[in-house]
Structure formats: C-alpha cells, structure tokens
C-alpha cells in the first residue's frame, strides 16, 4: 500500500513537472483550460484580467466574450492595405479581418512581440498604411526605433565564454524559465480553487487593506486599475510627472519610427495610443500625456487619440475589473480610425 502511495505521488509530481516544463504541453493545457467551463477549467480571465489578478469577489463581473460588431455602411471601395502593430486593446476586441476598416482590402495584424511589419512582401498597387498602436502605459517600452530596427537588421548575439555557454545550455535544458508560473497554472489555475482564492483576497483586503500588488482599487471603489498606471514611480503611470522635454523626446522617437517605415515602402504611418483607464476615470491629477503628445505632434504626425470621445462617458466604455476598454470603447476608437481612413488621399 505504501509503495502504491509512493508511486502515485511520484507519477503525479513527475507529470506536473514534465507538463510545466514543456511549451507545447502548456499551450495545449492553456487552450483546454480556457475553452470550457466548470470547476476543472479556468475562470481566471472570464471576469476580467484584474479580477484574475486580485480575486476580489465583488469584481467577479462577467465579461463579454464576443468581438465588437463589424460597422455597417463602410465604403465599397477597397484601395488600402492596412498593416497594424498592436496589443490586446485591438486583438482581444476586434477580429483580425479587414471588414472592420474603411477602404481596407488586406489586413496584416502583428502583435508587438512580432514586429516588424514588412511592406516588401506585398506587391499590390494599393496604398500601404501602417497603424502603430499601444496602450499609454507601454509607450516608453515600445516606441523605440532600436527595437524595430533590431528585427530588420539583426545583430549576431555576443559570443559568450565557454563556461557561460555551458551554463546557459544546462540551465535551459533542465529548467524551464517559467517553471514556477507554469506549475502554478497547472496545479491551481482551476475554477475549483476560485472560492478559496476569493476568501484569501477578501481577508487581505478587509483586514490589512492589501490587494494583489499588480492591482489598485479606484477611489470610488467600483473599478480596478493596473497598479503601474497609478504608481508615480512607474514609467507607464498616468500620475507620474512628465516634463515637456519628455513629451518632445517621445515625439522625436515617433518621428524616427515614421521616417524609418516610410523609407521601407509604407505610404502613411498612423499612431494611436489607448489611454490607461485611470487617465479618463480619475483624470483630475493625471499627467495628460496623450493629449500633450497630440498637441505637440500636430502637423508632423498623424495621431489618433480616442481620449476625448471616451472621456464623455468613460465608465460606459471600460470594464470595472479589466485593464482594457469594453466592446463599446473599442467601437468608439474604430469609428474614429475609419474617419481617418476614409480621408486618406487616393
């Protein structure tokens, strides 16, 4: 009996280790966990990413899973190719099909981790428009020409001394870099455990006033924000003091990127930055980074800033327990983009 128990423990632990060390295994598991419902599936993101980080039960608010509806009444003419480099503000809310966009015949969507977009591969005579999109909190990380250029013109990795090579080889062969997170996912990312996680989150919140460190609760208490968007020490914070020099510096980087892509064969480069939800929902002490970029960049760059339109009814356009906008918010931006696309010169 003791041997059987030992064998059982051995197999379970070994399976968990092998599965969590395998990228293919984790991809399969992730897909299966998020595909279904029930206690053996994951509900981590079903109620918003910030609920999944905080597990505060009062923010267990169901999210709409469907993509934003395709707008009606777009022009029949399809004379543009649209290339997009963007983040989850787009790919989680808009299906990657050209039907959403005015005049767009072909859509090439890339996530930020897969830049660059190359225009060379397309031989059509249509105008090539590049849209560069990022959420406000990520601007400093992604608006960097070096990052983009490095993919176009890769430099060979530095040659390490033999002992460091040996070290890296062994380490990557034996220990998956995300092993701890993968194990946590494999063993505990199940709806079965959510009530226990909620109980712990409630205890920490009510007794110590402590939330998960990635999360911050709004002053009114009815929204959650990413902590980095309110922490004045973080680069992506809406409350960090930003000097005019920094705004000019960001513009300079955007101009460099625009010039770079124009030289690579694009006809038009558009920028669009999505405001941190807190920038609109609690705007009184914000740094107004996006509007300052918009004003300073006027005439030099084409920037689509949805802030003004979203601000009109901000709480209508953002989830309470998610760091993103909702489908309505995405639609506001989409309409604004389509106005710009309609006006692109033939």
């Amino acid at each position: 009996m003791k041997k059987i128990v030992a064998l059982f423990v051995f197999i379970i632990c070994l399976l968990a280790l092998v599965l969590s060390s395998s990228d293919a295994g984790m991809r399969k598991l992730t897909k299966e966990r998020y595909a279904g419902t029930g206690i053996l599936h994951s509900d981590k993101y079903a109620f918003g990413d910030l609920y999944g980080l905080s597990y505060l039960p009062e923010f267990r608010i169901a999210k709409q899973e469907k993509f934003t509806e395709v707008p009606a009444g777009l022009p029949a003419e399809k004379d543009l190719d649209l290339y997009v480099v963007g983040d989850s503000y787009l790919y989680s809310y808009l299906d990657t099909v050209p039907d959403y966009y005015a005049r767009v015949n072909k859509l090439d969507f890339r996530r930020w981790e897969h830049v660059p977009v190359r225009a060379e591969g397309f031989t059509s005579g249509r105008k090539k428009v590049l849209l560069i999109e990022s959420v406000e909190r990520n601007i400093a990380n992604v608006i960097l020409l070096e990052r983009i250029r490095a993919v176009f013109e890769p430099t060979p990795p530095p040659v390490l001394p033999w002992w460091e090579q040996w070290n890296e080889t062994i380490k990557s062969a034996l220990y998956h870099p995300n092993l701890e997170a993968n194990l946590e996912f494999t063993l505990f990312n199940l709806a079965l455990f959510s009530p226990i996680k909620e109980l712990k989150a409630t205890w920490n919140d009510r007794v110590f006033g402590r939330l998960a460190h990635e999360v911050h609760r709004s002053k009114s208490g009815d929204h959650l924000y990413m902590h980095e968007t309110v922490d004045v020490h973080e680069k992506g914070s809406s409350y960090r003091e930003i000097s005019d020099d920094e705004v000019v510096g960001t513009l300079r980087k955007m101009e460099e990127i625009q010039a770079f892509y124009l030289s690579k064969g694009f006809d038009l480069v558009l920028f669009s930055f999505m405001p941190n939800p807190v920038s609109l929902l609690e705007a009184e002490k914000g740094n107004e980074f996006l509007s300052r970029i918009q004003v300073a960049g006027a005439g030099k760059l084409m920037i689509i800033d949805p802030s003004e339109r979203l601000k009109l009814n901000a709480s209508h356009y953002f989830y309470q327990s998610d760091s993103h906008w909702n489908q309505r918010g995405a639609r506001v931006w989409l309409d604004q983009l389509n106005e710009v696309l309609r006006s692109v010169q033939k």
Binding site: K2, K3, V9, F10, I12, C13, L14, L183, E184
Partner: peptide, 15 residues
C-alpha cells in the same frame, strides 16, 4: 512550487 514537486518526486522515488 518547484521545490514541492521536486520533493515529492525525490522522496517517493527514494522509497
């Protein structure tokens, strides 16, 4: 968790 899994594997294998 890495250690807990490691401990489970090694201890059960030991017996």
């Amino acid at each position: 968790l890495q250690f807990l899994v490691f401990f489970g594997i090694v201890t059960s294998a030991y017996y």
